[in-house]
Simulated scan of single mutants.
Amino acid sequence: MTKKRFLFTAGERLRGLRELMGLSRPAFAEIVGIKPKRLENIENGWQKMHDEDFEKVCSMFEEFSRWIAYEGPVDRQPLELKVADSAQKAAVYLVKCNPELLKSSGISLEDWKSRHQAVLDELNDDSADPAG
């Protein structure tokens, strides 16, 4: 029996991020610059992520680069995201639903909430509006 070192593999974290964004595999692959078949193989554990794969994904999702790469914390420094507003919203939603991602980041949940209050308010508005 092989002991799994991480709670989730990099491919599983990559799939989680893609699904939270509500993107198809081809759409996500285009955004990060990885071929859809390679992305499928990584997500399903048939191939490991190479350095260039991490570089492509982490350059698009800088705030989550340590988490994507090795299940590290979400970075405490506010970063300007290079992705669409919907992706930032998905990233905030991810931390909102999984505050343990902040555990070793050095930022408190209250500080994180104050930095992302506008997006959190928008998320709350969306959940209150069944049509949204």
Rank of each mutant, 00 (worst) to 15 (best):
H50W: 13
N44K: 14
R66H: 09
P26L: 07
M49D: 03
V57M: 01
S86W: 09
Q117G: 15
Y93W: 09
E80R: 10
D75I: 10
E55R: 13
F64S: 05
Q47R: 14
L39N: 00
P78D: 01
V83L: 11
R115M: 15
S114T: 14
M60A: 13
C58F: 02
P130L: 10
R18N: 01
R18E: 00
S105V: 03
Q77I: 04
T9D: 04
F64V: 05
F28L: 00
G72I: 12
V32F: 02
M60R: 15
K103M: 11
S104R: 09
C58E: 03
K37E: 12
L23I: 00
S59A: 09
K4T: 12
F61D: 07
P73A: 10
V92Y: 02
P130M: 02
G106H: 04
E71V: 05
G33W: 01
A84N: 07
V83F: 04
K103N: 14
K89A: 08
K113Y: 02
A69R: 15
P36V: 03
S59Y: 15
E30G: 09
V57R: 00
R15W: 06
V32W: 02
V74E: 02
R15N: 06
A91Y: 05
E12A: 14
N41P: 01
M49N: 02
L101Y: 06
L94E: 01
F54W: 14
G22T: 05
V92S: 00
I107D: 10
R76L: 03
M49Q: 02
M21P: 01
A87S: 09
D75C: 04
S114P: 09
K89S: 12
A118E: 12
Q77L: 11
A27M: 09
D111G: 00
S104I: 02
R18M: 00
F61Q: 03
S108M: 11
I107N: 05
M49T: 03
Y70M: 13
R76I: 09
